[in-house]
């Protein structure tokens, strides 16, 4: 029965009860009581529905608040992780830059002694073959004395650039001392290294820096040796150094190997 039909029926019953013609009829009292009970139950039902609706509304609102709070906290957590990851990435970059700075010679950007030592140790541990070359600029002190350290430094930078360009990716080129460079030719025999060093010495002879109107160029002396299996880096280095000394004594501007190729 629809709300409308229900209301119409109630109105009919009310009208019948109100009619004085039906007063005192045996059904009058029973019908009046039935109507009152119906009204009361209807009222109860409406209250129940309204309370239930209000509960549902509250539950819905609470759920939305929780949902919102959850989303906010999630967003915050994501922001926190994002920023924190950013700082960690920054630290990693900083560490990398520090590592670069601590392993490169600041003037020439070649490997410094720390990196060279590290690399030599790695080769020793892996017992890998290599050929070492120690290169020394001839009469470098004279250049510094006559033209000043700025010119000497510029020359070092220019030579370093030439060495770096000529070497293969897996070779190592480092600044061993003031005007001394070290080349490490990985998995390379003495003959092959000798060829590379000779080409390098020719390229370096073409390198020059200008001091005012004059153009200065230099020559290199080199000492080479191939690592013996089981030989320590210090021993290999010492042999290369001895070869270099002999090259110097023999008149400079030349390569010498130990043993001779």
């Amino acid at each position: 029965m629809t709300e409308h039909e229900d209301a119409a029926l109630l109105r009919r019953v009310e009208a019948l009860l109100a009619d004085p013609d039906h007063a005192g009829h045996p059904l009058h009292e029973a019908l009046a009581e039935l109507l009152a009970r119906h009204r009361s139950q209807r009222h109860q039902l409406e209250r129940l529905v309204s309370i239930s609706d209000r509960y549902q509304q509250l539950a819905m609102e609470a759920r939305q608040v929780t949902q919102k709070r959850y989303e906010r906290s999630l967003r915050r957590q994501q922001k926190l992780s994002r920023i924190s990851d950013g700082y960690q990435a920054m630290m990693r970059e900083r560490n990398k830059a520090l590592h670069r700075a601590s392993t490169l010679d600041p003037l020439t950007q070649l490997a410094n002694r720390r990196l060279i030592d590290e690399r030599l140790r790695q080769f020793e541990v892996a017992d890998r073959p290599y050929t070492l070359a120690l290169l020394d600029i001839d009469h470098f002190k004279r250049i510094n004395d006559r033209h000043g350290h700025d010119v000497g430094d510029a020359l070092l930078v220019a030579i370093a650039e030439t060495l770096r360009e000529a070497l293969r990716d897996y070779d190592l080129c480092g600044r061993w001392g003031g005007e001394e460079f070290l080349l490490l030719f990985a998995e390379t025999g003495l003959d092959e290294a000798w060829g590379i060093v000779e080409r390098l010495r020719e390229s370096v002879a073409d390198v020059g820096v200008s001091d005012g109107n004059r153009r200065l160029s230099v020559t290199l002396s080199a000492g080479l040796c191939e690592r013996f299996p089981g030989e320590s880096p210090a021993e290999t280095l010492q042999r290369a150094d001895q070869a270099l000394l002999r090259a110097k004594r023999d008149g400079r501007n030349r390569s010498l190997a130990q043993p001779s190729p």
């Binding site: 915050r76 922001k79 926190l80 920023i83 924190s84 700082y87 920054m90 630290m91």
Partner: peptide, 12 residues
């Protein structure tokens, strides 16, 4: 300059 995670949280 550098902030660790709990410092990032505090700043937020």
């Amino acid at each position: 300059v550098y902030l660790n995670t709990s410092s990032v949280k505090a700043m937020m």
